[in-house]
Amino acid sequence: MIGSGFGNISIMTRSLAWAIICFLVLPITVVFAVSVTDRHYLSLPESGVSFQYYRNLFGSGPWLTSILQSFVIACASTAVAVVAGTLCAIGCWRLGSRASDLVRMLMLAPIMVPTIVYALGIYQFWIDLRLLDTYAGLIIAHAVTGIPYVVITVSTALAGFDPRLEQASLSLGASMGQTLRLVIIPNIMPGVVSGLIFAFIHSWDELVLALFIAGRAVFTLPRRMWDGINESLDPTMAAVAAVLIAVTVSLLCADAYVRSRRGS
C-alpha cells in the first residue's frame, strides 16, 4: 500500500533519497569491514578476512566486564526510567492542565540541556552524595536522562487513547489502580515498549556522563572504547562497534515489530 505512491516520484527525488540513505548508512558498514581486518591496526582487511578481534573481544576479561557492567546499568536505569516516565506521562495526561504542560516540558530538560553541562552538574552533586564511580550513581544519572524518551513515546500513545475507556473502567467499579493496570497500560503498551527501547539504547551507548562520574570501579563499554581509541588503535574497537550496532539494530527491529503487530 505504501509502495503504490512511489511510481509518481521523479527520478531526481528518488536518487536524492538514496544518496542520503547511503550517506547515513555507508560509514557504519565500514565498521563491519574493519572489524574483520587481518592487520594490527584499524584498517580495511588486506589479504583476507580474520575474526581474531572478535575472539579477542570475547576472550578478554576487561572487555567482557565492561559489556556486563553496561548491560546491568542499562537494564536498571531503563527500569527506573520506564516506570517514572510512564507514570509521569499518565499523570500529566490525566490532569491535562497548563501545569501539566509545564511538567512535561521540565521532564524534557535532560535532553535539551547539553549533556556536558548536565554531566558537570551531576559530578558536583555526586561528590557530596558519595555516588561518584558507583553503579547507583551512573544508574540514577542514566535513568534521569532516559525519562524524556519514555515521557515522549508514552505521551504520544496516550494522545490516541480514548479517555472514555478510563471512565468506562471506573464506572464498572474498577479502582484507579485497577484501571491503570487493566485498561490504560495495556492500551499504551506500544508507547511504553518504544520508550523502554530508546531508554535502553540511550544508557547503553552513553559516554559523557560515564566519563565524568565513573572511571575506576565502574567502567562502561563506551568508556572502554573511548580509552581504547585514545590509547591504541586496537581493531577490537571495530569488533565492539559492530556488536553494538547489531544489538541496537535488533532492538529497533523489535520496536518496529511491536508497532506493526499493534497496528494490524
Binding site: D162, R164, L165, Q167, A168, S169, V183, P186
Partner: peptide
C-alpha cells in the same frame, strides 16, 4: 452501569 456514546469497549 453506564453505556457510553461510542460504547467505549476495551479494544484489547
Amino acid at each position: 452501569g453506564m453505556v457510553f456514546q461510542g460504547y467505549a469497549l476495551f479494544p484489547h
